[in-house]
Design a protein around this nucleic acid. Structure first.
Lengths: 240, 240
DNA sequence: CGTAAGATTGACAAGCGTCAAATACAGTGG
DNA sequence: CCACTGTATTTGACGCTTGTCAATCTTACG
């Protein structure tokens, strides 16, 4: 059960060996389940753990004093959550279940130990961390330089790429418009209006929380940022 | 020369051994110098390298089609630049010299090889990548949830923390207001107005590009986001 | 001394947030 | 099966924040 979903995490880079799969499974603690809206890990707790998301949707967010919060990432099965807090004494981000989900905790020290026995995995985790950085960089760029329309369009494209690697047009996004707003720094009211604009322009179709990108190419052109292809055969790893 | 500045990179986590210093120096290619405004590495180039910044200020940015650009990070001596592009076939970000600066290129494959011989360094680089993620997460939170005033105040606090670890109030920021705007997603005109507001409120003093935080505590309270202390003794590394 | 880049100021417009109300929708208990 | 309740979506009116445009002023530098 574990290995499958975790292997998928790195499938864009390289396939894992059976030994590597086992090494990852070995550092996972017993999985536990959470219900929708339940808090998996609160920001501020000390000695924070990391979590492999085995099933469901979750999100990480940072809260601001006045009650506002920024959602930083929507996680799907296979994601490693909470890693950004690893260098810190106290957790930086809150992890919340969006749908029902199952997570396996991982102690940072255990991951560090794995780095010693499996340097190739260490490199893969390093590359994955860089990918996450790029995702944040793109989002920052979109937030700073693009308007709400192109920003939301980018979000839909990114979710589509992750949910639908095969390229189907249809997808189910289990987020409220409020949550999308918290991701983009927009009010839920404005999210709603922008979604309607995109529909009116024929870029998106929508029924409830089912979204269809009617013309992905036009949508990409509209956004004006390249969609990264997280896919490069692993450069010079085992063979040094 | 190298080791000093690079060691400083990790000083918040743990001191490096002489062997580790040598290992890092060994993967560096011959350093080269750049003049202000010169492009060190353009986004889009294939097989991108990484660069240790040995001296000076540099910045990484992502361009948008219509000519706008988002500055993602201001780099000071000791930073590893360009790592986010490592998993990609083509460079994601443009690296530009802000002041005169000296950089040492590093091939991703060389770093991967170092991960095999020095797993503790691998873990340190992993943690550093997570710190960078948190920096982006904070900036994203500021951009999405805070207004221009608090956002700019946060930028000043962050620069102050990096430039002035000793806590002096005075610092020289070699950025134009235009560049600050490109970091925050604000127009240069608005940056100027906000800076004046902060001065009027007695939070900042400024002469040319010398900035003084007159009351750091009040400034921090004003922002409402915690300033991360990138300082935790390295958890379970060598002793596994 | 001349030129270019940056900083500053003002007037105006657009984008987005806020407030408030109305409407759909799902789950709950009678 | 139906009223009841809370949550999500939708719509409208209005105002603040921020961008745009254009001009002026300062500073650095050849």
């Amino acid at each position: 059960m574990f290995p499958d979903v975790l292997t998928r995490r790195f499938s864009g880079l390289t396939p894992l060996t059976a030994v590597e799969n086992a090494a990852i499974a070995a550092i996972c603690q017993r999985p536990s389940a959470f219900r929708p809206r339940e808090e998996i890990r609160a920001e501020g707790v000390s000695a924070p753990l990391m979590y492999f998301l085995l099933d469901g949707w979750a999100q990480t967010s940072i809260g601001v004093e006045d009650g506002a919060r920024q959602i930083l990432k929507a996680h799907v099965a296979g994601d490693l959550m909470g890693a950004p807090s690893a260098p810190f004494a106290e957790a930086v981000e809150t992890i919340t279940a969006v749908t029902a989900c199952v997570v396996a905790p991982v102690a940072p020290a255990a991951l560090a130990a794995m780095f010693e026995s499996h340097p190739r995995l260490a490199w893969l985790f390093f590359l994955t961390a860089q990918e996450e950085r790029v995702a944040l960089m793109d989002r920052l760029t979109a937030g700073g330089q693009l308007g709400a329309h192109r920003n939301l369009a980018l979000l839909l494209l990114q979710l589509h790429a992750r949910l639908n690697p095969l390229g189907d047009r249809d997808m189910e996004i289990p987020m409220t418009q409020q949550q999308m707003g918290d991701m983009l720094g927009l009010s839920p009211v404005h999210v709603n209006r922008v979604l309607q604009d995109l529909q009116r322009d024929g870029l998106v179709r929508r029924e409830g929380r089912r979204y269809a990108l009617t013309d992905p190419d036009r949508l990409r052109a509209f956004v004006g940022l390249p969609l990264r292809t997280f896919a490069k055969p692993l450069p010079g790893t085992a063979g040094a």
